[in-house]
Amino acid sequence: MSRNTLVVPQATQALDQLKYEVAQELGIQLSPDGYNGNLRTYDAGKIGGTITRKLVQIAEQSLGGSSSNWR
């Protein structure tokens, strides 16, 4: 179980859905029962990195700019 706490607890379902969508895009099979103990660390990192990139992209779009404005 993750130790991270979500600021918006209702986001759990959306994040899980995003995780499965990203895994499917990358061609990585996730277990539907939630146990992914057989998942390679490399694959888990690819999923997490892609999710992070997508979330940053969504945040940038909602702010109406890009990260280069913050330098």
Score class of each variant (00 low, 15 high):
Asn4Ala: 12
Arg40Tyr: 00
Val22Cys: 04
Ser66Thr: 09
Leu30Pro: 04
Ile28Met: 06
Gln57Thr: 05
Val8Glu: 06
Glu25Leu: 06
Met1Glu: 11
Leu63Trp: 14
Ile51Gly: 10
Gly49Lys: 04
Ala59Thr: 06
Gln13Asp: 09
Asn36Leu: 15
Ser2Asp: 11
Gly34Arg: 11
Asn69Leu: 07
Lys46His: 06
Ala14Cys: 06
Gly48Asn: 11
Pro9Cys: 00
Leu63Thr: 10
Thr52Asp: 05
Gln24Lys: 15
Tyr42Ala: 13
Thr12Pro: 00
Leu39Asp: 03
Tyr20Phe: 12
Asn4Asp: 10
Ser68Asp: 14
Met1Pro: 09
Pro32Gln: 14
Ser31Pro: 00
Tyr35Arg: 14
Gly49Phe: 01
Gln24Trp: 04
Ser66Met: 02
Arg71Phe: 08
Leu63Pro: 00
Ile58Arg: 12
Arg53Asp: 02
Leu26Cys: 08
Gly65Leu: 12
Ile47Tyr: 04
Asn4Tyr: 14
Gln10Ser: 13
Trp70Asn: 09
Gln57Phe: 09
Leu55Trp: 04
Gln17Pro: 03
Val8Ala: 01
Gln10Lys: 10
Asn36Val: 05
Thr5His: 04
Asp16Arg: 03
Tyr42Glu: 15
Glu60Val: 02
Leu26Lys: 10
Leu18Lys: 15
Tyr20Lys: 12
Gln13Ala: 02
Thr12Ser: 04
Gly45Phe: 05
Thr41Gly: 07
Thr52Glu: 15
Ser31Gln: 13
Gln24Asn: 13
Lys46Tyr: 06
Ile47Asn: 01
Ala23Trp: 04
Leu39Thr: 06
Gly48Ile: 03
Gln10Arg: 11
Tyr42Gln: 15
Glu25Thr: 04
Thr52Lys: 08
Lys54Ile: 04
Ser66Lys: 06
Ala44Leu: 15
Gln17Asp: 09
Val7His: 11
Leu6Asn: 07
Arg53Trp: 03
Val22Pro: 09
Val7Met: 06
Ile28Phe: 08
Arg3Gln: 13
Leu30Phe: 14
Asp43Glu: 14
Pro32Trp: 07
Ala11Arg: 07
Ala44Phe: 08
Gly37Trp: 04
Thr41Arg: 11
Tyr35Lys: 13
Gln24Val: 01
Ala59Glu: 14
Gly37Pro: 07
Asp16Ile: 02
Gly64Tyr: 01
Pro9Tyr: 01
Gly34Gln: 05
Val8Asp: 13
Leu30Asn: 13
Tyr42Asp: 10
Pro9His: 01
Asn38Ser: 15
Gln57His: 09
Leu15Thr: 05
Gln24Ser: 12
Pro9Arg: 03
Trp70His: 02
Ile28Glu: 14
Ala14Tyr: 07
Ala44Cys: 11
Gly48Val: 07
Trp70Tyr: 09
Met1Leu: 12
Trp70Pro: 02
Leu18Phe: 06
Asp43Arg: 11
Ile47Trp: 03
Ala23Val: 03
Leu55Ser: 03
Ala11Gly: 06
Thr52Gly: 02
Ala44Glu: 07
Gly65Trp: 02
Glu21Gly: 05
Lys19Cys: 09
Ala11Pro: 10
Ser68Gly: 05
Ile47Phe: 01
Gln61Leu: 05
Pro32Thr: 09
Thr5Phe: 02
Arg53Gly: 00
Asn38Gln: 15
Gly45Ala: 15
Gln10Glu: 11
Lys19Gly: 00
Glu21Val: 08
Lys54Val: 02
Lys46Asp: 03
Lys46Glu: 07
Gly49Glu: 00
Arg71Glu: 08
